[in-house]
């Protein structure tokens, strides 16, 4: 089934974001692991795998719409040097992506591509959940201090 070039290039941009996100969270996960922060490792590792599954769905959708999924392009990673900075970097990434997803969903609406819209809405839901988790971490750090927070992550 053929689609419009605007839908296809939008889907490829969303795919680039997911591919970048896979690497960002994978590296952050293993940095946490290296420092012994196992709960943070788990959370970021699972987020990375989730991004991979989302990328998979986007790739299949692009192929279905007779486009070529761009697996060459990768965005710049935003990697922190310590926990607070890593949470800040991830928060920035999530906010940018959520903005992008909303624009993408609006485009599906104007192009009447309701199946793509459903796929993107599902991704958006997960991205919002992760942003909420990041905000909770930030709140906890503000309230109990970074030392206590990190102790709880061992």
């Amino acid at each position: 089934m053929q689609s419009t070039s605007t839908i296809l290039s939008m889907l490829n941009e969303v795919l680039t974001t997911e591919l970048t996100s896979i690497n960002q969270y994978f590296l952050h996960a293993r940095m946490y692991k290296n420092w012994g922060f196992n709960t943070l490792n788990d959370k970021c590792y699972k987020k990375s795998i989730m991004d991979m599954k989302q990328a998979d769905k986007l790739i299949e959708r692009i192929l279905f719409l007779e486009g070529l999924p761009n697996l060459q392009r990768l965005g710049a990673l935003s990697i922190g040097e310590h926990t607070v900075e890593m949470i800040k970097c991830d928060t920035g990434v999530q906010i940018t992506q959520i903005e992008q997803m909303k624009t993408a969903i609006a485009l599906c609406e104007t192009e009447k591509d309701y199946v793509t819209r459903e796929l993107l809405t599902e991704i958006l839901e997960h991205e919002e959940e992760h942003l909420d988790w990041l905000e909770t971490q930030d709140y906890q750090i503000q309230n109990m201090g970074i030392d206590k927070y990190l102790q709880a992550q061992l």
């Binding site: 990673l77 935003s78 990697i79 922190g80 040097e81 900075e85 970097c89």
Partner: peptide, 11 residues
């Protein structure tokens, strides 16, 4: 944060 990941250079 890391600005250049290839060479490990930070802000």
């Amino acid at each position: 944060m890391f600005v250049c990941l290839c060479k490990g250079i930070t802000d």
